[in-house]
């Protein structure tokens, strides 16, 4: 926005919202919203505690393992679907279905089969992340220019070489876009999983804070979670822009 000829950066409005929060908190409009300043004070107090750090660690572990599985399975599956018509027709309807299905309904299934623990949360992460990764990897392979593939074959590349030297790289921009979107979905997955399992990580913390009505603690945890999620999404977007020149030069 431009005011009096000066450009005011977008994030400055977040500052405005923060001030608004502080005022509402100070006015004690609702017991649910403590002032931002006291939440920030609480932040320094509870973030270093063992219980908070372990919640963060448990969450990060499930999140990372889940994403690694989703990428390790999703990218090859997507490339296969992009290459093979039969695989595409066999899998595409299901991938599309799960992409927009209410996946929360499937979490109870994972819970009854795998119990109330880390495994369930990891699988929830996979369930949320994988479909968009598959779809984007597929789109990436399908958008590879035929002349590039013909070039590889005419210079005598075998199947494995064509895969590792051409497909993977040529489809990279779309694959990365899919991974970024998958990771953002995974953030939601890990929290939804923990809320439903409710004895692990932040799910347990929220339950504790809720039962004792510790609003400042609650908001602290939210603030940390939201900030981490935002930083993650933005840094992935930054990374993606760095490889964007591929897509541009590929035409």
């Amino acid at each position: 926005m431009i005011v009096f000829g000066r450009r005011i950066p977008m994030v400055a409005s977040l500052l405005l919202w923060a001030i608004l929060w502080e005022i509402i908190g100070q006015l004690q409009v609702t017991i649910l919203l403590p002032p931002l300043s006291s939440v920030v004070m609480r932040l320094f107090e509870i973030v270093p505690t063992a219980s908070f750090m372990s919640a963060l660690g448990v969450t990060a572990y499930a999140f990372i393992v889940g994403n690694v599985i989703a990428i390790a399975v999703g990218v090859p599956l997507g490339i296969l679907m992009g290459r093979s018509v039969i695989a595409d027709r066999l899998f595409l309807p299901w991938v599309n279905l799960f992409l927009s299905a209410p996946l929360t309904a499937l979490v109870p299934v994972i819970m009854v089969i795998f119990g109330l623990g880390q495994t369930t949360i990891i699988l929830t992460v996979v369930l949320f992340a994988i479909w968009i990764i598959v779809l984007d990897a597929r789109a990436g392979v399908r958008s590879i220019s035929p002349s590039l593939v013909e070039m590889a074959h005419s210079f005598g590349a075998n199947r494995l070489q064509a895969f590792t030297r051409i497909y993977l790289w040529a489809a990279l921009p779309e694959i990365l876009a899919g991974i970024r979107l998958g990771v953002i979905r995974a953030v939601k997955g890990v929290i939804i999983g923990q809320l439903l399992v409710s004895i692990v990580g932040f799910g347990a913390l929220f339950k504790l804070y809720g039962s004792r009505f510790l609003m400042e603690h609650f908001w602290t945890a939210l603030l940390v979670l939201f900030a981490l999620a935002f930083i993650l999404a933005e840094s992935l977007a930054w990374l993606e822009r760095r490889v964007d020149f591929y897509a541009a030069s590929r035409g």
Binding site: S13, V187, F206, F230, A233
Partner: peptide, 20 residues
């Protein structure tokens, strides 16, 4: 300017955590 940062954060954040 006023609203987009809120929604950009909301889009990336696990809003389910607000349920309690």
């Amino acid at each position: 300017w006023f609203a987009s940062p809120i929604f950009i954060v909301a889009q990336a954040a696990p809003l389910a955590a607000l349920i309690p």
